[in-house]
């Protein structure tokens, strides 16, 4: 049989898997404000996609439309095969929505809060208890199960909200600025939880202003500006160095960095980006290894008291600004 197959005409290549989220030509207007303009993208099952944009760029509006909380003015969103406008109830069963701001109930404990949502999602007695226990264990909420909701710290409340999002085991998780306002420890814990969820194969669509965090959590990044998608691609490629573009080098000197700054100003192909108390950040253009080597040699030959220098890794913020600048120019 294998022989026959290999001897016969070549098989057509397998069709790409149907995206779990498909957004096409999405538009949203609020009176005179055109919040989302023709946004289109696909998310495959198991992908962790970071959604990046400045305030007012259209992130939350797009996410709210995906969560069936806003009706698009035009365009279409399908999640797990269901249209968010035509079949919102089915979509809601497949998504977990975590908004950027959410309220707490007074006089309700952590366990009662999760129990209420488990009931609301349709879980019955034993299954409900089991599910609540699983979620509390996953989000490490068990030690504070009897604590009143309004007595929780921001980090605990965020974990509780994530726990609520997980109760019905959604296929797609839409998290709007989940790490906003968290202290560094809570942020690390939250990042850890997202990684665990990604490991379980959940499709996660997450927005944040803290771009460096997104680069660590997400395998794909989606940039939005003024309601339009300006970049959609893998996080790694965005962070990779383009050898033809300028190289950014952090230089540390002994004593006053003014000498280094003066040298940078006088040297062709070298640009001072930022002066620091113990050195400066310089841009060398072009940034290919041969030219960079020559320029660094010249810097040493010029008598600059260099203590240390190293090529700076490209940050996500730089990539975002670069894309924006490119668009504007």
């Amino acid at each position: 049989m294998n022989t026959l197959e290999s001897a016969g005409p070549s098989q057509p290549p397998p069709l790409p898997p149907e995206p779990v989220v498909s957004v096409r030509n999405l538009e949203r207007r609020f009176d005179s404000v055109h919040a989302v303009r023709g946004v289109s993208f696909d998310i495959q099952r198991g992908q962790v996609v970071g959604f990046i944009g400045a305030n007012g760029a259209g992130k939350t509006t797009t996410m709210r439309m995906m969560a069936t909380l806003e009706i698009p003015t035009a365009g279409r969103i399908r999640i797990c095969g269901y249209d968010v406008v035509n079949h919102p109830t089915e979509v809601r069963r497949h998504i977990g929505w975590m908004p950027d701001s959410y309220g707490t109930y007074g006089c309700v404990t952590v366990h009662e809060y999760l129990d209420f949502y488990a009931r609301a999602f349709g879980f019955r007695k034993q299954e409900r208890e089991q599910r609540v226990a699983e979620v509390m264990e996953f989000t490490d909420l068990a030690p504070i199960a009897d604590r009143m909701m309004d007595k929780l710290s921001k980090g605990m409340a965020q974990r509780l909200c994530l726990g609520r999002t997980l109760l019905h085991d959604p296929e797609v998780m839409i998290l709007d600025e989940p790490a906003a306002g968290l202290d560094p420890k809570a942020r690390l814990e939250f990042k850890h939880l997202v990684r665990l969820l990604a490991g379980e194969g959940k499709t996660i669509f997450i927005s944040s202003h803290i771009l460096s965090e997104l680069s660590e959590m997400c395998d794909t990044l989606l940039f939005i500006d003024a309601g339009k998608i300006i970049h959609y691609g893998a996080a790694d490629t965005l962070l990779e160095h383009d050898t033809k573009s300028a190289a950014i080098v952090d230089v540390q000197v002994a004593g006053d960095p003014a000498l280094l700054a003066d040298w940078a100003k006088l040297s062709p192909g070298v640009e001072l980006i930022e002066i620091r108390k113990d050195g400066a950040r310089l841009s060398f253009d072009p940034g290919d290894p041969e030219t960079l080597s020559i320029q660094l040699r010249r810097m040493l030959d010029a008598g600059i008291p260099v203590v240390d220098f190293h090529r700076s890794s490209r940050r996500l913020e730089d990539a975002f600004v670069e894309i924006l600048t490119g668009l504007q120019s």
Partner: peptide, 26 residues
């Protein structure tokens, strides 16, 4: 974890609306 599966209502509290349970507690 799996989505909720329909089960017969055995517990009295399961007959009551989740909102009612929460509101009474609160």
């Amino acid at each position: 974890m799996t989505p909720p599966t329909p089960q017969p209502l055995k517990d009295f509290a399961d007959w009551i609306s989740p909102m009612l349970v929460k509101e009474l507690r609160q």
